[in-house]
Design a protein around this nucleic acid. Structure first.
Lengths: 117, 117
DNA sequence: ACATAAGATCGGCAAATGCCGATGTAATCT
DNA sequence: AGATTACATCGGCATTTGCCGATCTTATGT
């Protein structure tokens, strides 16, 4: 993973001890960090996290109207949560007739999981 | 985290009847969902995610003043980001003299990782 | 064609977030 | 003691967020 942030040595400090050793400091590159943060952000809401949890185990089987009674929020709010998850690439939708069936995209969760490992 | 959900089989239904049966789903692990969401939320910022990434590789070796030049934000903003990570239980601090050495608490990341698996 | 239903989007509002400079606190140096 | 340093916290500001009811779009049934 490309090093984008570099460590600069401290210029001032009490004479005795150095604050810290200068370290070549690898970090996730900016683009990847932004992507990972976006994934985490999308999961950073209790309702959305529960949505993902439910969808993960019932992908393609549950329509939105079935999801609705599980949460104490309005239909529009639920729809907006699902949109955020969609925008983050965490879920996808399949429309069948009047209904919308959401499913988790496992690769998205895998991305985060990989970084966490 | 198991949100216990019973799925009602989907069937075509006449107009005028609800799309699906309401599903009896007590927000069983509501507490755990909140915890996981809080973890994800804390990671849901590019700067904080990069902070965690750096700290993970250099736990206890890097003081805040050394972290600072890595990010294009003010000292106070950096400090506030670290506080959020602290509050989420993702990092801890050890103070040595004037300096503060942050380290990642691996169990916190593990929590999220486990759920993602 | 018309009515109905699922779901997305809009407008608006209160609360939370990220950011900064200024100030506070505590440890260390002269 | 006073000065300096590292870091935390405060006050304020602009943006984003979550939420809602209302409305729009699209598909289906009569």
């Amino acid at each position: 993973m490309a090093v984008e942030l570099e460590l600069a040595p401290k210029s001032k400090r009490p004479i005795g001890e150095p604050c810290c050793e200068p370290l070549a400091m690898p970090s996730v590159d900016s683009e990847r960090a932004a992507r990972l943060a976006a994934l985490a952000k999308a999961l950073g809401d209790k309702t959305r996290l529960q949505l993902v949890d439910v969808l993960r185990r019932h992908a393609g089987e549950v329509c939105v109207c079935e999801l609705q009674p599980l949460f104490d929020i309005s239909q529009s709010t639920l729809s907006e949560h699902l949109k955020k998850l969609r925008d983050a690439g965490i879920v996808g939708v399949e429309r069948r007739g009047l209904w919308a069936y959401y499913y988790v995209i496992p690769e998205a969760l895998e991305e985060l999981k990989t970084w966490l490992t």
